[in-house]
């Protein structure tokens, strides 16, 4: 699955770049991320919990930042083993372009799954991957525009209700 999208973030490229390299921000943005250790230079190890309907899978894996060309572009890639569920891997080529007061962030995402997830869930893999990518960059935008520091509660995994339900709960709605 490949998808491409663009969003404009109300912050200059340097600020956006800095946020991307911030492990706390990264951890907050990866949907379902429970644990992340490491650094931008050497990579991160992460534990991510994903729920799709009744399916719950825990992925243990790595997140890497590569092809870094500050503050213009980089690649964020991740790969996780989900035990009986199989594996998931994905990457996003991210480009930052100054856009008036802000930054245009363009991402080109490629996602792959293997094992049982592919064998049994092919009908929803693409939709789910695009939803994850959307959640990742929406969260990133919110954090950057909100001042660059993730809220304390964001260490919680995104719940089954998906991003909007999560957001509603976060702000006391629903």
């Amino acid at each position: 699955m490949e998808l491409k999208d663009t969003r404009v973030i109300k912050a200059d490229p340097a600020t956006v770049w800095k946020a991307i390299l911030d492990p706390e921000v990264l951890k907050a943005c990866v949907p379902g991320c429970q644990e992340m250790t490491g650094n931008a230079e050497q990579g991160f190890t992460a534990t991510v919990v994903q729920r799709v309907g009744p399916v719950k899978a825990t992925f243990k894996g790595i997140v890497n930042l590569s092809d870094m060309n500050a503050p213009n572009s980089l690649t964020i890639s991740g790969e996780g083993q989900g035990g009986v569920a199989g594996f998931a891997k994905g990457g996003a080529d991210v480009t930052l372009t100054p856009n008036g007061e802000g930054t245009e962030l363009t991402y080109n995402v490629e996602a792959k799954v293997g094992g049982k997830l592919a064998q049994l869930g092919s009908r929803i893999i693409d939709s789910f991957a695009s939803k994850m990518a959307d959640q990742f960059f929406q969260k990133f935008q919110d954090i950057v525009e909100g001042g660059g520091a993730p809220a304390a509660s964001t260490a919680q995994p995104v719940k089954q209700g998906g991003f909007w339900a999560w957001l509603k709960r976060l702000f006391g709605g629903a």
């Binding site: 799709v52 929803i124 789910f128 089954q160 339900a165 709960r169 629903a174």
Partner: peptide, 13 residues
């Protein structure tokens, strides 16, 4: 309208 919040997700707490 409020209950169904995207595939496999609902407003249920």
């Amino acid at each position: 309208d409020d209950f169904f919040t995207g595939m496999f997700s609902t407003a249920l707490n």
